[in-house]
Structure formats: structure tokens, C-alpha cells
Design a protein around this nucleic acid. Structure first.
Lengths: 285, 285
DNA sequence: TTGCCTCGTCTGGTCATACCAGTAAGACCT
DNA sequence: AGGTCTTACTGGTATGACCAGACGAGGCAA
């Protein structure tokens, strides 16, 4: 073992030096894992306003010293928060507290799908509950700017086949604009997760896209109801929309399963709903 | 600039040694960050059934070799997944894929609160939407076992002051049992996040507890409606419950803010809703 | 023989250190 | 004065060592 030799000698040399390698007496006794403790402390630093959304954190090296942990340990915490979406790191320039929480639930939600594999019906019922509520709120609370955003998205769908990538992106914008108009941030985030989740679940069981077969007319009804500030109409139209969407999803899924079993694909472990693979960054162009 | 000196000198010395420091050619060109890539690959391993919920993963050393990354890099990924609740690690024995997703959205949701600080009203509106829906479903779909669980929780609240820790825990069990009876997993998880979030938000603004002032009668009405399989009554009662809860929350929060400003506490940064500190493991005894 | 105890060796947890790789600002030259 | 080039940051990755729980196999004592 030649490689260990020089290292060993080095460690014997530096062993006596560790007199104050660990001066952190401020470590709480509860924290079994340093990483978790660090996450907790960073959370606290954000919550008490030391680091506000959008602010830059000290460099990893400095922060590690400041918190009394090694850089690898600090990095574990930092990377965790970055993956969750609470921090944004840019190689070479620094780490910032996230400005918005829009990504924050998504990665977790993916694993929720993976672990518990809810059915499409379950997902769609949830989506219906939330979107119908949101559209009602949007009809009540919308500003003129909201109407413009919703109308723009609607225009993006007009006249092109609903399966076109552009139409799909516009459809997503449409629902997002409505959610924003509703001014209910938590539900907006949850809805976004559901969109991803439904798309992933459908994709996993076959080629097909969210709201692909959606008729343009329903979207127009929703838009009009919001413009007229008529929550009841808006809800009605959205309920219709969601019902059609779920039918569509079930059809696509059934078709996908058929195609799959005919090609003799493995992984037919569950008859009901199939695996939810990651969405894999299907961005709007 | 003393700190820069040793850095420079060291780098000149160690430059020639880097002959084959980086033999890993299997790295995909897309993956800017290895850690993210590893997370993606582990996700895929779970999604394709190689590792099922509850299963034990290989040791970190083995898995690192298997995936062709260093242990720290693998650990970053593993710890991230552990923090969000997708994996469970036990020092000395191993790492398992989580069996349930109950914890999975929670840590993310905490940061959602931190970053966007939704108002209590927002949180409670969301909770109302979800819980009213769930209780209706529960009334339709409940099994006898569900009724027993809900009844047990109700008994746990009977006759003791609603502020007692035991009563609070029972109240939590009550709502959880209803959510379970509704058989809507996604909403059940979201509701759980909201409970935590509301509690944290209230706690941050002063001493007070979720549903503390709740009258026992409403809970009984809800329970009875579920037993009688009457969704409409169940929804009505839950709507009432939620309305009372929100009033209570607002009162507690206002009181807390008053107390705070009188003691001259700092951190009165926002008049609307105050900071949401971490829930800090308020477990039921 | 049976029970307890101990020790070895698994596991994850932490660390110091070295080096790679982007980024941006300053110095330098033109 | 303007553009380029160096340089000293930033985060990203890897190595290897060691610490600390957990758990089973073996030895020792009753």
C-alpha cells in the first residue's frame, strides 16, 4: 500500500496540531449529523433575515469557517438546499438565496410520485380541486395585467394544432397566468407540481402530452369568464376542462399501455398506473 | 495579501503531478454537476424498480464505485435525498429507500414559507379548500377501520382542555385519519405540510397553537357526518371548523404581534405576517 | 450446554487537502 | 482610452484517512 504511506506520515505529523481543530462548542447536543445541523442553522439565518431572498452568501470556505464545520460538510448542506431550490449556486461567482420558491417543491414532488405512485385519477382529481378553486379566485381578484397575460397565452394556442410544442407551452402559460391572478401562492406552487407530475406520469406510460386534446373553446370560455369577473362561470368551464383532461389522460395512458404490452416491454409491474419517470426538463421554447 | 501567497506557491509545486488525476471518461457531457447527475441516476434506479421503497442500498463505498463517482459526491446526492425524505440512513447499518413519502414535501415546504412568507390567510384558505374536499371524500369512501381511527382521535380530545399537548396531538390525528380515509394521497401529503406551515407561522408570531380554541362540538359533527356517510354535512361542518380556526389564528397572531411590539422585539419587518421559523420537531408525546 | 460479553468489521459521518474549472475584475499592453 | 490577458477569486470534484455507531461471530465464564 504505497499510497497510504505518505498520507500516514503526514497525518502523524499533523496529529498534534489538532489541539483546536474543533473549537465549536456552540454545537447543539441534539445534532447527531453535522449536515442537518448546518441546514437548520442556514434556515435560521434566512428566517431571521440575516440572509434575505436574492442575497449572496459568503463563499463556501468562509461560511465553513464561520459555522465551524469542514467544507465538505458545509457543501452537503449547501448542495441539498440548492437541489431543493432554496439556494442558487453559480460556478465561479457564488451562492445566492433563491429569489422565488417556484422550483422548491418540484424535486421533492418527483420523489413523492416515485415512492407512492399515485394514480393519474388521483393526480387529476387533485388538480381539478385546485384549478377550479384558483380560476374562481382569479375571476374575483384578477387585475388588468392578469387579463393581458391570460389573453396572451390564449393567443399562443389559437389556430395551431394542440399537440404542437408551442401550443403546449402556451397552455402551460395559460394555467400559470390564471394561478398567478388568483394570488394564492401556495396553491400556485402546488398546481405547478401537479402539472409536472401528471405530465411525467403520462409520459412514463406512453407518448402523449398534457391537455393535448383540449378543445380551444373551453379555454376561451375560461378566459371570458375571468374577463367578466364571473367566478361561477369560470369554475364551471374549468370543471369541464379538467374532466376532458382526465378522460384524455386515461385514454393516452391506456393506449400507451397497450402499445407497451404489444412490444413486450418489461416493467408492467402494476396494472393501474405506471412508473413516473423524471420530467427531464421539458422546457417551453 | 498573505492568504494568497501560500496558494500560489503550492499550485506551482503541484502542477506537474496532475498526469492522470481524472481517468473518468464515462462522464456524460450534459452533466455539469456530478451530484445532480447522481441524483438523477438514483431516481432512475428507483423508478425502474431496481431499488424499491424499503429496500436497502449498497454501501456508500460500493455505490460510489458502481456509479463511478467519488464518495463525497455520492454522499452529497445521498444526503440530499435523505434530507428531503426519499432515503433513510441509519448510522452503522445502512441506507434504505423510504417506505413512505410522508416526510417528503415537508422540508421543502418549510423553505417555501421562508422564501415567500405567505400570509396565514393564504395558508388557511388553502387548508380549508383541501380539508373540506377531503372530509367529503372521507364521508364517501371511509371504511370501518377509518371510522375507528377517527373516533379514537376524537376520544383523545374528549374532556380535556383543547390547549393540552395531548389534545393537540389528538386533533392532529383526527385530521390525519380523515385525510387517510379520503384515500387521496397527494392531498393528504399537502394537508400535512399545511398543518406544519400554519403551526410554524403562528408560533413565529407568538405563543399559540393550531386549533387551540376549537370547540369539541364541531369535531363531533364532522365525525358523525362521516359515520353517516353524509358528505354534504361533513363539508359544512369542516367549513365551519376551518373558519373558526382561521379566526383563532388571526387572533393569536395579532396578540403575539402586540406582545412583541410592547417588549420591543426586533424583527417586525413585515406588518402582515411574520416570520415562519422551523417547526422544530414538535412531536406528539 | 448455555448465556453473556467482547471484539472485529461492517455501516455511515466527518475531515483536511489537493486540484479542476468557471468567472470577473484588474493590470497591462497597444 | 480601449481591448486583451492575467490573476485571484468563486464553486466542483476527488482522495484518502479516520471517527463512531451497529451488529454478528466468536470466546469465555457460569
Amino acid at each position: 500500500m504505497p499510497p497510504s504511506l505518505n498520507r500516514a506520515s503526514v497525518s502523524t505529523v499533523r496529529a498534534p496540531i489538532r489541539k483546536q481543530t474543533r473549537p465549536q462548542t456552540q454545537r447543539k447536543q441534539r445534532a447527531a449529523r453535522v449536515g442537518d445541523d448546518v441546514i437548520e442553522r442556514i434556515k435560521r439565518l434566512i428566517s431571521d433575515g440575516t440572509y434575505r431572498p436574492g442575497m449572496q452568501l459568503p463563499s463556501e470556505r468562509d461560511l465553513a469557517i464561520q459555522l465551524g464545520v469542514s467544507r465538505p460538510s458545509l457543501r452537503e448542506a449547501l448542495r441539498t438546499l440548492a437541489v431543493i431550490g432554496a439556494l442558487e449556486t453559480r460556478h465561479g461567482s457564488g451562492t445566492n438565496v433563491a429569489r422565488s420558491s417556484s422550483r422548491i417543491l418540484k424535486s421533492s414532488f418527483e420523489f413523492l410520485l416515485l415512492l407512492d405512485r399515485p394514480t393519474i385519477v388521483d393526480l387529476y382529481e387533485t388538480r381539478e380541486l385546485i384549478e377550479v378553486h384558483l380560476v374562481g379566485r382569479a375571476a374575483e381578484r384578477r387585475t388588468d395585467a392578469d387579463v393581458i397575460a391570460i389573453g396572451d397565452a390564449l393567443d399562443g394556442m389559437r389556430g395551431i394544432p394542440p399537440t404542437a410544442a408551442e401550443a403546449i407551452a402556451a397552455n402551460l402559460r395559460f394555467h400559470e397566468a390564471i394561478a398567478r391572478a388568483a394570488q394564492s401562492l401556495v396553491l400556485e406552487r402546488m398546481m405547478s407540481c401537479l402539472h409536472d407530475g401528471i405530465r411525467a406520469t403520462i409520459q412514463a406510460s406512453g407518448p402523449g402530452v398534457l391537455d393535448a386534446g383540449m378543445s380551444f373553446a373551453v379555454h376561451e370560455q375560461i378566459h371570458d369568464a375571468i374577463v367578466r369577473r364571473n367566478p361561477a362561470d369560470a369554475r364551471r368551464a374549468m370543471t369541464l376542462h379538467m374532466g376532458m383532461g382526465m378522460d384524455d389522460a386515461l385514454r393516452v395512458q391506456a393506449a400507451g399501455r397497450l402499445a407497451k404490452s404489444s412490444t413486450g416491454s418489461k416493467r408492467a409491474r402494476r396494472p393501474g398506473v405506471d412508473v413516473a419517470a423524471g420530467p427531464d426538463n421539458q422546457e417551453s421554447p
